[in-house]
Amino acid sequence: METPPVRRLEQTLADFAERYGALTRAREQMRALSVTACSRDDVVEVTVGADGRPASIRFVDERFREMPAAQLGDSVLEALSTARAEVAARFSAAMASAGLPVQVTRETTRPRPQGPLWGRRPASSYAPLPPDLRAAVVALTDSVCDAVRCV
């Protein structure tokens, strides 16, 4: 038996509200994301934010003064790489919990969402709707897209 158009619209709106809530929670997790990692030799500690940029670099003790520059540089890069990898893992986990697939590119450790998060989807991915219901869904989609762009 076919679902009535009003019931499908209600389900579409409920699905949208659930997805929007998940995305909002993931965005808040990303805003608060900060990772601190230490080098294996425990000389350097690096904190990075959600964008993978270093927020702070701290020398744990005075041992760094006796290290050759190349070794100290390696320790800094190691701690930075470890922190960035953890940020990427947490980003992926947050996006996955929101039901959004991600892809990590080789050029960067920061994952990128796959496909559009908002906006129009290909018409082929939906069953045809009655004209009046389709008009309501298109109007809702346009309103949401406009609201998201203004934020």
Rank of each mutant, 00 (worst) to 15 (best):
E28I: 12
E28F: 07
E28S: 15
E28G: 14
Q29G: 10
Q29K: 10
Q29R: 12
Q29N: 06
M30S: 10
M30A: 05
R31I: 14
R31W: 11
R31C: 14
A32W: 00
L33H: 04
L33S: 10
S34W: 05
S34N: 08
V35I: 01
V35S: 04
V35N: 01
V35T: 00
V35D: 00
V35Q: 07
T36G: 08
T36E: 10
T36L: 08
A37S: 14
A37Q: 09
A37L: 06
A37R: 06
C38T: 15
C38I: 15
S39H: 01
S39D: 01
S39Y: 00
R40Y: 00
R40A: 15
R40Q: 14
D41Y: 08
D42R: 14
D42E: 11
D42V: 13
D42K: 13
V43R: 00
V44E: 00
V44T: 04
V44W: 02
V44Y: 00
V44H: 02
V44K: 00
E45P: 07
E45F: 02
V46D: 05
V46H: 03
T47P: 04
V48S: 01
V48P: 02
V48C: 04
V48M: 02
G49P: 10
G49R: 05
G49S: 03
G49E: 09
G49V: 05
A50D: 08
A50S: 14
A50V: 02
A50G: 11
D51H: 12
D51P: 15
D51W: 02
G52A: 07
G52Q: 07
G52T: 11
G52V: 05
G52W: 01
R53S: 14
P54V: 05
P54G: 04
P54F: 01
P54A: 10
P54R: 09
A55F: 04
S56A: 15
S56Q: 07
S56N: 10
S56E: 14
I57M: 08
I57F: 06
R58I: 10
R58F: 02
R58S: 07
R58T: 12
R58V: 14
R58Y: 08
